[in-house]
Design a protein around this nucleic acid. Structure first.
Ligand SMILES: [Mn+2]
Ligand SMILES: [Mn+2]
Ligand SMILES: [Mn+2]
Ligand SMILES: [Mn+2]
Lengths: 227, 227
DNA sequence: ACTCGGAGTTAGGATTGCCTAAACGTGGGG
DNA sequence: CCCCACGTTTAGGCAATCCTAACTCCGAGT
């Protein structure tokens, strides 16, 4: 009953737009032209143009001057790209000596060039992982995704013990610093102290104490230890 | 003294043009517009246009109405692409369950998306192979290539024993048939009979006799058994 | 309600890369 | 030696994707 209209194949650009819009509009919220432009490092005018084209292809719902949302088809396409991106990252780290701070750039290009077949082969030799090297969940081939609840480290109350779940990719140097502190998905830490007004956060990682800025605390997401 | 002028980065199309021209102009010969057009499945007019652009970038030598040759820089760029293409093929076969009839298409896209770093990582885990799954030699990172002498199976005299060296890629079905006969790089065979006027060729492979058409004999290249 | 300032869109232009149709050059056959 | 057929180039178009500049809309604050 659905999916009767097959879309013309997406371009590289179109794929990146849909991914960006997915990340910018969680839970049915709306993404703005300037947010998209900022994320993709393009002018707002260029985004207006592409948004119009993707809407005509049935991938976006666009209310002029208001914002953009993915349609069911657009969401499907976005999740397909997310699966590719994250599996490629996982593969490069597992088999080709990449580290989590260098995979993103490579995956950003490869995600557009691999076939479905290659993606699924990589998934198979990896043992169908649930998350990528940054802790981001990998959608299924059918387009389902399970985003476990998590809160930024900067919002964890002092005294709590938590597990690191996800670290925002995209800035290699920041990732390298975060790794040097020992903060990686799966690591258990304790928050010793948190100063008000975006103040520094004191944590204990593997028996050692570190003080990190609030900005870093916002890109490291955690969950309580149970579960 | 050379390479002072750095070229603007090649586009996907440009990379494919240079590869095609390399294959079409062995030993300093010249490639024609229509040959290039045929190989890339484009119109001759489109080729004229791109040839002009690549010449302006210093990658081609073009004599209008006569033909095209690679400059030193163009040759370097072409061999870089050939290294990528062939290493990707070797990697996919070695580690991701691809067979020699399916790798070409995947490599044709990936060759434009991988970084130098990824290519060299693949080369390293492969142990720096000298040839790809079709027996085609892999250029070095410095752009040297060693093309061992070989002759088409269709020109091997009856009675000779030869080793299969290279099989032309590009037509999956043909490769599948050739594989079913047992003709792969490294295999030793004997030519039992060769009929004149592009007639069929009778060969012995692994103790079994096969008769193949002359066309197939032209895309399978061999060398004498010593060395 | 009115008015700005900022966000968003439209207008116009450049580049790349492809096409078809028309014009042009070249070399071989008559 | 000339002319024509074929291969090549040029002319003119189109689609995608980006840009800057100019215009338009919206809503926050008075
Ligand atoms: Mn991308
Ligand atoms: Mn990631
Ligand atoms: Mn290619
Ligand atoms: Mn090959």
């Amino acid at each position: 009953m659905h999916a009767a209209l097959q879309h013309e194949p997406l371009t590289r650009s179109g794929e990146d737009y849909l991914k960006a819009i997915y990340r910018l509009s969680p839970a049915g919220r709306t993404a703005s032209t300037s947010e998209i432009a900022h994320r993709l490092e393009l002018s707002p005018a260029s985004v207006s143009g592409m948004v119009k084209r993707l809407s005509e292809q049935g991938l976006l719902e666009h209310v002029p001057y208001k914002g953009v949302q993915l349609t069911a088809d657009g969401r499907r396409a976005a999740l397909r790209m997310l699966r590719r991106h994250r599996l490629i990252e996982a593969y490069l780290v597992a088999f080709l000596g990449y580290t989590w701070d260098t995979v993103h750039e490579e995956a950003e290009r490869l995600e557009h060039a691999v076939s479905d077949k290659l993606v699924e082969r990589m998934a198979a030799v990896l043992g169908n992982p649930a998350v990528d090297p940054h802790g981001d969940p990998i959608p299924t081939p059918e387009g389902d995704i399970h985003e476990p609840a998590s809160i930024p480290l900067s919002e964890v109350p002092a005294g709590a013990r938590v597990e690191i779940r996800r670290v925002e990719e995209g800035q290699p140097e920041r990732l390298r610093y975060i790794a040097s502190v020992g903060l990686r998905p799966g690591v258990h830490i304790r928050v010793l102290d948190r100063q008000p007004f975006q103040g520094p956060i004191t944590i204990e990682v593997a028996g050692r104490t570190h003080v990190i800025g609030n900005e870093l605390g916002q890109v490291v997401r955690c969950a309580s230890e149970q579960e």
